[in-house]
Amino acid sequence: MSLSLEALKLRRSRRPWVVLAALVLYVILMLFGFATYAETETGGNVEFRYTFENESYFNGLTFAVYAFYFAALLLLPVFASTEGGVQIAGERSAGTLPLLLSRPVSRQRVFLSKFAVAGASLAMGVGLFLVLVLGVGLVFVGWGELRLYPGVLQMTDRPQSLSQAEALVRFLWVWPAASLAMLAPLTLSLLISTWSRSAVNAVGLSVSIYLVLSVISEIHFFRELRPFLFTSTLGYWRGLFREDIPWSQIFREASRLLAFSAAFLGVGLWRFRRQEER
């Protein structure tokens, strides 16, 4: 019952539509940027003396990788933080938390239902977004072989090429892997949400923490901190695009992300179960 209620509330809210609109706008901008970049690189205006890019490099699959890469490291975690942030704090600020807790339903069930619906909606969002970028890539650019190089998007550490069919399979694997990565910002914001009385504050704080941590985890000076930041491994799914998938690394980093997510969820639940509602 709690699950159906949370699912219906999400369906009736404006949030999914705002997210969808933002993602569509993002894809349009990416398509424009990708086209101009490809034109610069292959249209006789190449500045670099030693270059590896050519016309076959720029196809719909490369576009999908580019578009998904930036979305998965910036946009989608922000949306995940937003979704988590509004859960408890949103109910509290709207005054509906007493309505939920005035039923013979445990706080644990309320909390975990919210987590389950938010997590499932994020996974659906990740999947839909992958379909969107692949579709746009197919329609406007056309698919082909997926060629990746070290450095570019930091996806691979040696030049490589995946056939179109293999690349599409990899996109399919990336769906659950990237969805799992989104659990960390989601659960962090859910945890923050239990502390906050205002949805705006909870979302703002969650997004800020995510952005700060993601910058810190990329900066060399914080090497010692990196293992303790979930943002350091948030892009672990990129390994799935390598010719030889580094499974042990993927399991290791996925485990680390899950550990962070479980810890955030545990602390959030612990807090929510012991919290007074004034």
Partner: peptide, 12 residues
């Protein structure tokens, strides 16, 4: 459940 989650976090 929170202790189960925290235990899972430690194990992972």
């Amino acid at each position: 459940a929170e202790w189960l989650f925290l235990g899972l976090a430690v194990a992972l």
